[in-house]
Design a protein around this nucleic acid. Sequence first.
RNA 1: CGGGCUGUGGCGCAGUCUGGUAGCGCGCUCCGUUCGGGUCGGAGAGGUCCCGAGUUCAAAUCUCGGCAGCCCGACCA
Length: 565
Amino acid sequence: MTRQSGYLLPTEKEAPADAEATSHKLMVRAGLVRQLGAGMWTYLPAGWRAHRRVEQIIREEQDAIGAQEMLMPVIQPADLWRKTGRYDIDELFKLQDRKGADLVLAMTHEEALTFHVAREVRSYRDLPLMLYHFQVKERDEPRPRAGVLRTREFIMKDAYSFDRDAEGLDRSYERQVDAYDRIFERSGLEWYRVESDVGMMGGVGAHEYMAPCAAGENEVALSDAGYAANVEIASAEAQAVDGLPEPLSAPEPVDTPGASTIEAVSKLLGVPQGALIKAMPMIRDDGRPLLVLVRGDHRLNEIKLQNRLGAPARQASEEEIRSVFAAPPGFVGPVETRVPVLADEALRGLSGLVAGANEPDRHLRGVEPGRDFEVNWGDVRDVVAGDRCPNGGTIRIEPAIEVGNIFKLGTRYTEPLGARFLDENGKEHDIWMGSYGIGPARIVAAAVEQYADDRGIAWPRALAPFDIHLVTLGKEGEEARAVADRLYEELRATGLEVLYDDRDEGPGSKFADAELLGAPLRLTVGRKGIEAREIEAQVRRGQEKRTLPLDGAVDAAAELWRALP
RNA sequence: CGGGCUGUGGCGCAGUCUGGUAGCGCGCUCCGUUCGGGUCGGAGAGGUCCCGAGUUCAAAUCUCGGCAGCCCGACCA
């Protein structure tokens, strides 16, 4: 029953005062969602419709690659999480039952499913296996934000593959890549598949699916030549520095009183920032110090550094800089330092550089890595727009929202949870595992972000809560009302999802609400049109209007709808 | 976790500095009017001023403590 007169669709003229993101404002204004607390959101009927449409696309594509839908609990024994070493994650909600037993609210379901697989799968004959469910995830986010884009509770489709070896995992992973490509293609979103960091998940490979939009929390490095990677791991050739100083035969000191920042030194000495060596004193996880160098106009990428080192590292405190690095903060440099040096590739081959002198108010110029100090090399900087891709393209950087991610986990979870199988020779092996997540709410929000205009949402056809918004301007007893009533029934009979605005409102507010809610096609039945034996059709994207003959209007509308994006 | 901001009918806000009857717009109810782009007029309903303690004859307003929400950053499976 989707007559608007009886449907809970509370639209608002004004957005919540504290909303910033487009999707946050519009999803509230259009009556799709309401907030219950920080990072806690209720889906009202129309919003839940959009969510379910996304779910259904995902479900169909998962089923199509042989994944089997199931359901696992959110509340779980803490022991499982202790076994995989994830119990101490801050984002994990922890609680106790009345007996004092430790429980957690699951943030994903690797532990639970691997627990079951460890018990039910004994033989290579049981593999490969692909399972999934749609289930609430709970995460104690340090900072929920932007409406439904980052919440503490959300529904995720998470799928898990189980294979006998790495080759099997590769095949399962490729099947999910195909399924995900189809899911996002069908959703109508603009999207990229990008290489990504494996993060805390552990494992051996990962991709993220990104939907570009202004409210996105991630940055994606792209090139027209087809390169696509999360900036967290993106790699490219640095642009040359304009105006590098002439090389010197040996470093020479130069007074730089008070110039402890790249900008200050650059200005004081009249050299470009790219001619400076930015020296970052770091302390590795095992306590060993390390001096990391990047070009002055570049930024250190801590994820790439961590991957290069194989272990986390943090910035040294000022105290540690003085004691361990024997240098005043702001004037640290690689020449005659007492700690190992790791330099970014962008510094390779450069000379005539300026670096800290490890004494107060002084720098060295004419520095050349390799000649003036021993160095290990690594790619540890953020790429910047304009860098050259290995394949020839030029990097640009766009904000994007992560709408899906896929991981090759390997034996990260199966090993600690004892998920093993016997091969043909009766020999036992760990099962190889992959995990594949999608957040339907983010797909909904990304669609709102990508296609909104100044009047409201403009859904892609695949995700709209309603296919057609039928608006009657006729009052009870008028012909326009009777015609619209009939049209409503006939449209529904074709299988289209129709929202019928039969409210006793003026045309202005009905049109405004329809454009705010954003169904791809609006049909208007009014007295003027009836007299001319026609109804008006307006395509939401671009607001193009046309008239359809009243006779055969249902078929004409359905045909028009099918042609929409 | 660091920085900033905000809590006043359903929504958006004023009032707080300078203590003294709680206000405006939208929305809501009823009557009339209008009816292809948020009509117009009239009459109404609706508020623990986030919570607690304190100062005072008197607190939305001053003081102290707490809670909640938002934004930036850190963080983020």
